[in-house]
């Protein structure tokens, strides 16, 4: 009898577990898709600027010698990027404080990317061309943007970068 009771309770517990496992699991909404195009058009004000020594990063040196906050050294917080148009158009950079920048202040922008490569922002001003990588991915509703300008040696190895974080203006 005792064995029968044990068997019954075991069956009841297993049935309960089995029924629970059949319940439809509700996953949270994945939310808004990330759109690089949607996330660049508009006007953006620099919140932080950081210089990165890629050699120190690659060697796993202490963080203190990998990056340098430039926001406190130069007036980057007054720099405003304006990207006009939908997927391409004119751009203007207002640099009231004269912070060091590494690309033309006006020209045209577009999204540039090979089939298997990363999508980048291409800035063209006359014969000058500069590329900005998306340093972080945001949803349009985040109202944030993060772009990175890098310098590479003749072998294509990046040795330093400047990362600019923006808030929508």
């Amino acid at each position: 009898m005792k064995n029968l009771k044990t068997l019954f309770f075991t069956f009841a517990i297993l049935t309960s577990i089995a029924l629970q496992s059949c319940e439809k699991i509700k996953y949270a909404d994945v939310g808004e898709a990330i759109s690089l195009q949607e996330n660049i058009k508009g006007t953006w004000k620099v919140s932080t600027a950081t210089q990165i020594d890629n050699d120190a990063v690659n060697k796993n040196f202490p963080l203190a010698v990998q990056k340098l906050d430039l926001t406190s050294r130069f007036p980057y917080s007054t720099v405003v990027f304006a990207f006009n148009g939908e997927s391409t158009g004119n751009y203007t950079i207002t640099n009231a404080g004269g912070a060091p920048l590494f690309f033309p202040l006006t020209g045209t922008w577009s999204l540039d990317g090979t089939k298997n490569g990363p999508v980048r922002v291409k800035l063209v001003s006359g014969t000058q061309i500069a590329f900005l990588d998306f340093a972080k991915a945001y949803r349009a509703s985040d109202n944030k943007l993060s772009l990175k300008f890098s310098r590479a040696d003749s072998d294509g190895k990046v040795f330093l970068s400047y990362e600019f974080n923006f808030n929508r203006n």
Binding site: A56, K59, F61, R73, F74, D153, F159, L160
Partner: peptide
């Protein structure tokens, strides 16, 4: 690879004349 602190240091390690 060990970072060795020194009296003088330049950041970044490699740069162009147009860089900070």
């Amino acid at each position: 690879l060990v970072f060795s602190p020194s009296v003088f240091r330049v950041f970044p390690n490699k740069f162009t004349q147009d860089d900070i």
